[in-house]
Amino acid sequence: MRIGAVTFPGTLDDVDTVRAIERAGAEAVALWHGDADLRGVDAVVLPGGFSYGDYLRAGAIARFAPVMEPVIDAARKGMPVLGICNGFQILCEAGLLPGALVRNHKLRFVCRDQWLRVESTTTAWTTRYEPGAEILVPVKSGEGAYMADERELDTLEGEGRVVFRYVEDNPNGSRRDIAGVSDGSGRIVGLMPHPEHATDPLTGPTDDGLGIFLSAMDNVKQGAA
């Protein structure tokens, strides 16, 4: 079981992502923005940070990095892909996920532990959670407000593609308290909060984030079986 973690110039959370993958029991494969192939991984994570300094728009330049060509290709063929924070922004910019992430309301960068509700437990990254489970993971972003037009939001709700929702206190003005969404197949998921920072109670608020990585491993195993 090999799960890749991509490093772009300006990525910050690749090390914690690698650590989370290993803690879940998979082999972590470091992928570089200039890579032309995915080194045989079974799933791939785009970690958080500020790729290319967030120039132009967050994720707008990373979306055209060489490694994104095989990522987009593999995603379209059904490989589980997870975008966390800046990785979520990149997936939206790449058109793999609908909507966009914009500047937080009141322009506040928010860094705190955040309760989320797992709204969909059928995606490749969330099968380990009980429906409606509430998890506590860090959120740390300045451009985390999820935006899409009303019709798109209705479609996402109707198709059960709102995967995570902020509980109680929406940190950024995100439409309908959305913290994470999936594509139509449920194999591509993006979320603003950071499950990879919550995989070990020693260094994070909880280990609630571990289920994300374990779910993907289950999913890949089932696909192979």
Binding site: V102, R103, N104, H105, K106, L107, M147, D149, G173
Partner: peptide, 9 residues
């Protein structure tokens, strides 16, 4: 229809 927090600020 998109919130513009920078303009608002």
């Amino acid at each position: 229809e998109i919130l513009d927090p920078q303009g608002q600020a």
